[in-house]
């Protein structure tokens, strides 16, 4: 077990010595991970380091072969993303999981519609709540909320996906490369949004390959290599060179498990 400060609260979401194997491939080799409430934790590592697999274990898509997932210090067993959602863990995938022909409100509430008479949806109510939540998060929607999200820009779509997750998440929001496909200005807006989500007291976990961006927005950085955590940093106490060294295996500050 790693040396965690006794005064600090239990992590909002944690992985303890998680193993996951796909056929002959050991994707996760005893990885541990912690995300604290009110913090942005960046998860970085080279391609194939196991970041996405770890996120999928944390979001209930995969079940670890061994090791535990903890929410607020309590071990939990998640068998589906729905289980994770029930525990207040929301995930924004790289491909966003939006239905392009539906409008923003319909997407935000998809699968969790506000209902009337059990079988009807209450679209005005859903639109109101969406507008309110978007305004709270500072997500600007130039277009009418009735326009299909397909007509949105990449950044707007990303914002809808993050806002949806932020709206439902009680605890943790997991973002898999949220800015990978965005331009400079859109990226800045999305990072702003991530900060605002953090200010609501949620634990934010995000995967990124953009190290300057990681240092800009993350409070802490956890580095994965070959299916295990190799280093942890506070973002103020490290720099890009050190992160690269950790990613490539030249540097570690993690005691071998």
């Amino acid at each position: 077990m790693t040396s965690s400060d006794d005064r600090s609260p239990a992590p909002a979401l944690a992985a303890r010595s998680v193993e996951k194997q796909f056929g002959q491939v050991r994707a996760l080799r005893g990885v541990s991970f912690e995300a604290m409430a009110g913090e942005v934790t960046a998860l970085i590592g080279d391609n194939g380091a196991g970041k996405s697999t770890l996120v999928k274990c944390l979001s209930g898509v995969h079940r670890p072969d061994s090791g535990t997932i903890e929410v607020d210090g309590q071990p939990v067993h998640m068998t589906s993303p729905t289980d994770a959602e029930r525990m207040g863990i929301e995930t924004v995938y790289q491909d966003l999981a939006l239905a392009p022909d539906l409008d923003a409100a319909s997407n935000v509430f998809l699968g969790r519609e506000i209902r009337k008479f059990r079988f009807l949806h209450d679209q005005p109510a859903m639109r109101r709540q969406t507008a309110k939540s978007f305004a709270d998060l500072g997500v600007g929607m130039v277009q009418d909320l009735r326009v299909p999200v397909a007509s949105f820009s990449g950044g707007q779509r990303q914002s809808v996906a993050i806002a949806r997750a932020a709206m439902w998440a009680q605890h943790v929001i997991l973002l898999d490369e949220p800015t990978a496909a965005l331009g400079v200005i859109q990226t800045a807006k999305v990072l702003d949004l991530i900060r605002r989500v953090r200010e609501r007291g949620l634990a934010v976990v995000f995967i990124s390959h953009n190290l300057p961006q990681v240092l800009e927005v993350a409070d802490r950085v956890e580095v994965m290599r070959l299916g295990a955590r190799v280093a942890r940093f506070k973002s103020g106490e490290t720099d890009v060179e050190q992160l690269i060294a950790a990613i490539s295996g030249a540097y570690t500050n993690e005691v071998a498990a």
Partner: peptide, 25 residues
């Protein structure tokens, strides 16, 4: 401006300064 948009409600454009599209367009 935010107040104005929330007043005109969900039916109209939510133009806002933070609008991602405003700068981008």
């Amino acid at each position: 401006q935010d107040d104005k948009t929330s007043e005109t409600g969900h039916l109209h454009a939510m133009a806002e300064v933070a609008a991602i599209d405003a700068t981008e367009a």
